[in-house]
Every structure is written in structure tokens, then in C-alpha cells.
């Protein structure tokens, strides 16, 4: 098999890292490289438009913008780590938001403080529960019925989005209690609430992956499902749990979007599916499963948000943005293959 590598000791890359200078070491690891790129983008934009880009206003507005797609990327990442993909994240976000929105709507915008709190609590529970149920369905179709994840989540994504359309007739759900805006637009001191939500979720997922037995099982399953069975890993439960977690993170993203838009609709954030895949690939999550770090994902989110903000200042249209994201995805993947080729040699 890997005959030339047999007995060759550590891979050339590992040797390099041990002997090279600190700068080189930083650039040799994918995450280090990404960190440098992120800083470079930030510095470049800061130099280009110091007053507009580094302003408190812009920084805060960025901090409000990225948590929603960052949460979706986190959901996508979990599925990718198991060797799958979750094409239904946006569908789950919207469906859970619509159902939560209907719960909120029952309370209405002029509800008393007590009723509003109750309704918001109910809405959060509904949303996360819907996300979990959607995740169970994904996990069952993939883990029990052995559907390829692409097809399973393609089909379920259509169902979730379709249910959203069917329930609302395609229009937006409006009219929430004013207090609900806290989730998407509120701040704790100077820190935006959505940023806190994302930070908590990211730290949680990172802890789960790095420090728990379950996290290691996810990555082992993603590396080789057959060997997982032979090693006594309960592949079915790991799959279901992971898609449930992914569904709940998507639902959380849905809540943030709904609160920021003050409405819920079946076709919100349709470009986020591509964006979340782009972030995962950029962040070094292996699309074939088994490898990836939350820190890489966070850096990818930040660099994309900086870029996006720069594009905003240039008044670039949404269509052009779609073009840039797609192009970036392709370029990053090409660069990553050259990396792999070099490592294998």
C-alpha cells in the first residue's frame, strides 16, 4: 500500500515542522496559515479604509452579522466530521424559525412582559425541539436506512423547506413581542448577544470534539465507518446524536436570523448553504470526514466576514458576492490539494 512510506519514520512535513523557524512553522500548519491570512485581510481593509472599517460601528455590525452563518457552519462541520454533509441546515433553520415564529405570533407584538417572556421561552424550546427532530430524521435515514448523506439531506432539506412553504403559504411570519429582538439585536455590555451565542456554541463544540469520548468517536467514525463497527463504536447512535446536534445548531441560527429580521420565512438565507460549506472547506474541515478543528472554522468565519464587510464598503451586489464566494471555494480547494500532494510526496 504505502510502501515508500514504510519505515520512513515521521512524514517529511513533521520533520520540517520540528526543525524550521517559528515563522515557517506557523505557515506550515493550515490553521497558522489561515490565521495569517485572516490578519492580513483585516490589516489590508484597515489600511484601505481606516475610518470606515475599524470604526466601532463597523466592528459591532460585523459582530452582529456573522454569528448566524457561523452557527450554520458549525452545524455543517459536525456532519462533515462524520464523513457526511448536511444540505438541510438552511431548511432546518427556516422551518424551526417558522414554527417558533408561529408560537411567538400567538403572543403578538403588544403582549405584556410576562406573556412575552413566556412566549419567547416557548419559542426557543419549539425551535430547538424542531431542530432536534429534523436531526433525528436525518440521523435515522443515514444511520439506519443507509442513505448516502448527500441524498438523505437533499431530500430532507426539500421536505423541511417545503413544509415551511406549505405552512406559511410562502409568506413571512411577522409580529413578534419586542423583547424577542434581544436574541439577534441585543447586547450584553458592548458584546452582541448573537456573538455570545456563537461563542458558547463554538466553545461547546470544540470541547466536545477535543475532550470527550463522543468527540473522538465522531472523528473515528468519519475516518472509517467499517473499522468503527469492528472497534465496537455504536455508529448508529453517534450518527444520530451528531445530526441532532447539527439540527439544533441550525435551529439556533434560525432563531438569530428570525430575531434580526423580525420575521421568519421559508426562503431566508438560501445562500448560506454554500457559504457554510465554503467556511468548512476554508477552515480545513476535511469533506471526506474525520478531520477538522473549530479554531479553523472560526478563523474562516472571521476572514469571510472581513471580506464581506469590505465588499459592502465597495457596494458590491449580492450577485457578485455569490460569484466571489463560489470562486473562493474553488481556489481554496485547489490550494488545499497542492498542500496534500506536497504532504504525500
Amino acid at each position: 500500500m504505502n510502501e515508500p512510506l514504510d519505515g520512513a519514520g515521521p512524514t517529511p512535513d513533521a520533520t520540517l515542522r520540528r526543525t524550521a523557524s517559528p515563522t515557517f512553522r506557523l505557515l506550515a500548519s493550515p490553521i497558522g496559515r489561515l490565521a495569517v491570512i485572516t490578519v492580513l485581510i483585516f490589516v489590508a481593509l484597515a489600511l484601505l479604509a481606516p475610518s470606515r472599517f475599524v470604526s466601532v460601528g463597523n466592528l459591532t455590525s460585523m459582530a452582529f452579522q456573522f454569528p448566524e452563518f457561523a452557527l450554520l457552519s458549525l452545524a455543517m462541520m459536525l456532519a462533515m466530521l462524520t464523513g457526511g454533509i448536511d444540505l438541510s441546515v438552511v431548511g432546518i433553520a427556516n422551518l424551526s424559525a417558522i414554527l417558533a415564529g408561529l408560537a411567538l405570533h400567538a403572543a403578538g407584538p403588544e403582549a405584556s412582559a410576562g406573556t412575552a417572556t413566556l412566549a419567547i421561552g416557548a419559542a426557543i424550546v419549539v425551535s430547538l425541539a424542531v431542530g432536534a427532530v429534523c436531526g433525528v430524521i436525518n440521523g435515522l435515514t443515514i444511520g439506519r436506512f443507509a442513505l448516502p448523506p448527500i441524498l438523505a439531506t437533499l431530500g430532507s432539506g426539500l421536505i423541511y423547506t417545503g413544509l415551511g412553504v406549505a405552512i406559511t403559504g410562502g409568506s413571512a411570519v411577522l409580529g413578534f413581542p419586542a423583547a424577542f429582538a434581544i436574541i439577534g439585536n441585543g447586547s450584553l455590555g458592548i458584546v452582541p448577544v448573537p456573538l455570545i451565542l456563537f461563542a458558547v456554541a463554538a466553545v461547546g463544540v470544540a470541547f466536545l470534539l477535543g475532550r470527550t469520548a463522543y468527540g473522538i468517536r465522531i472523528e473515528l467514525l468519519g475516518t472509517n465507518p467499517l473499522a468503527s463497527r469492528f472497534a465496537g463504536i455504536d455508529d448508529f447512535m453517534v450518527t444520530v446524536k451528531t445530526y441532532v446536534l447539527s439540527g439544533m445548531l441550525a435551529a439556533l441560527a434560525g432563531l438569530v436570523v428570525m430575531s434580526r429580521a423580525n420575521s421568519a420565512k421559508a426562503d431566508y438565507g438560501s445562500s448560506y448553504m454554500l457559504l457554510s460549506i465554503l467556511i468548512c472547506v476554508l477552515g480545513g474541515i476535511n469533506p471526506n470526514g474525520g478531520f477538522g478543528k473549530v479554531s479553523g472554522l472560526v478563523l474562516a468565519v472571521l476572514s469571510l466576514q472581513f471580506l464581506s464587510s469590505g465588499l459592502n464598503m465597495l457596494q458590491v451586489s449580492n450577485f457578485a458576492r455569490e460569484f466571489i464566494w463560489g470562486g473562493l471555494l474553488l481556489i481554496v480547494m485547489v490550494v488545499n490539494t497542492f498542500e496534500l500532494v506536497r504532504h504525500r510526496r
Binding site: I277, L278, V281
Partner: peptide
Amino acid sequence: PTLIVTLGTLSVIRG
């Protein structure tokens, strides 16, 4: 990987 490439080209082409 074909899925990710064609997702990318789809948005590039449309963009």
C-alpha cells in the same frame, strides 16, 4: 470532490 466543485461553479456561473 464533485459536489463541492459544482456547488462552487454554480454560484460563480450565476454570479
